[in-house]
Nucleic acid binder design. Structure first.
Lengths: 248, 248
DNA sequence: CGTGTACTTGATACAAGTCAAGAATAGTGG
DNA sequence: CCACTATTCTTGACTTGTATCAAGTACACG
């Protein structure tokens, strides 16, 4: 994915959720000053450091995680192209803890001061960014639901549906599949289960014809059945704007 | 808790996290138009209905939940006095799904239009409300961590620490304890475990002298030990503003 | 006082964790 | 391009935390 996709991603993401004037998107696009590359497995930011810029992911995947003292790890959020990885730093002025690149990543950088100016002059843009925060929270609550009451197979089904839907918004799906650049160990830390169990569940889902995986790609031949298994809201799949249904 | 506490709660909450001009808080206070009572166990809003107001809880507890088709329930968020229960409706214009009063509740009501005007004129206020959304998301991610990797006892410890800290911000703690108006079944649906197991874990924590419960009240005689057990960030306990540490 | 709701406790079942060891891949340097 | 290494993936055996079922007790409340 080339840098020139920045505009496309901004447009896909923002106009998907609200009506934002093209002018505002344009101004936002132009306010990005530079881009930053991060290699796979590296930290994206220095935890807790003073932050003066926000980063908008244009290629690659990264994720937020938390560690417990004995080494247990839980990913709490996954970012894909079209996501701001540290939008909170705009208000917080500090970098988030535990933000790691799952793959090589490229992010477009915008300074807080530029963003500051922009949202004063373009209130619609401010609302869109606020809404992004709201969507992030809604997704986190979906994870809470999943981790709280679903069994391993249901969690997996839901996880794949969520990724598929989010990737579709930014045009990253390829037919009925997408690139899934994640080890089973990483998945286990997203889904709150052991890596061994991830492997077994993937085997079962494959047997049942619900997923196909090879070469870092997944295919979901029967998305409806997968969504039903994970009780992932069908509305979310049909029209991505309906993700809003989940927010309120 | 009387209605006159609205100002106090707004002040405690907003000024705890950011420096907001007193004038802004004052104007926000005056923009609330009415108050609404909801009885225990009732739905606070009609799910998915058109929303034109936001509600700020002034007394009582309520919570967001999600149901699976077979009846499994998971609470995804708990609200206490000083929390906006449906701030998202300001951008979304729809009521959230599954919002229930755990106890009798009273909420102060502010119309979206009034809020709209206000945040245009008081940008600091807008940032504070946006920050509230960010904090909600951060809390949800803490739940993800807890549900994902912690065992039942650790989850409990963390849960009580979180409640204590949040109540402290709005002055609802009573010494080393607080009112916990929740059945064990409700706790089980917050912590992603069965009600029976909740009961057993409470018993163990009581044995170990980490909690005392009676008459709908909890005491945490050794908060430090409890925080250590749940790996709840000590920084959060000491200075509530440090909750921000968790956000970024 | 009786009737429902919440709490408590015991016995049993099972989903998922852990440990271990081999097979398949992917990376790396000569 | 191949051998060498390190991850990752896969599978089996065993363990354990937590769910489920069941039944009884303590309250709360009309």
């Amino acid at each position: 994915m080339s840098d020139t996709d920045l505009y496309g991603l901004l447009f896909a993401k923002l106009s998907n959720r609200r009506n934002v004037p093209a002018r505002a998107i344009n101004r936002l696009f132009q306010a990005f000053s530079s881009s930053r590359m991060v290699s796979a497995k590296e930290d994206v930011v220095v935890e807790g450091a003073h932050a003066s810029t926000c980063m908008f992911l244009t290629s690659g995947f990264c994720a937020r995680y938390r560690l417990l003292v004995d080494g247990r790890r839980q990913f709490t959020e996954i970012f894909m192209p079209g996501d701001f990885v540290n939008l909170g730093s705009f208000l917080k002025k500090r970098q988030p803890r535990g933000l790691i690149a799952l793959t090589d990543c490229r992010a477009a950088v915008i300074s807080h001061s530029a963003l500051d100016r922009l949202i004063c002059e373009e209130p619609e843009l401010m609302r869109s960014l606020w809404l992004e925060t709201l969507v992030d929270g809604a997704i986190s609550r979906e994870w809470v639901l999943s981790l709280g009451v679903q069994n391993a197979k249901e969690r997996f089904a839901r996880f794949f549906c969520e990724l598929f839907m989010r990737m579709e918004i930014v045009g990253l799906t390829e037919g009925d599949g997408f690139r899934l650049p994640m080890t089973q160990t990483e998945m286990s830390d997203m889904l709150g289960m052991s890596a061994v169990h991830v492997n077994r569940i993937i085997g079962e889902l494959r047997e049942e014809g619900l997923i196909e995986m090879c070469g870092g790609r997944v295919r979901l031949p029967d998305l409806a059945a997968l969504a039903a298994l994970g009780e992932f809201e069908a509305a979310c799949l049909e029209a991505s704007t309906d993700l809003l249904q989940a927010i309120a």
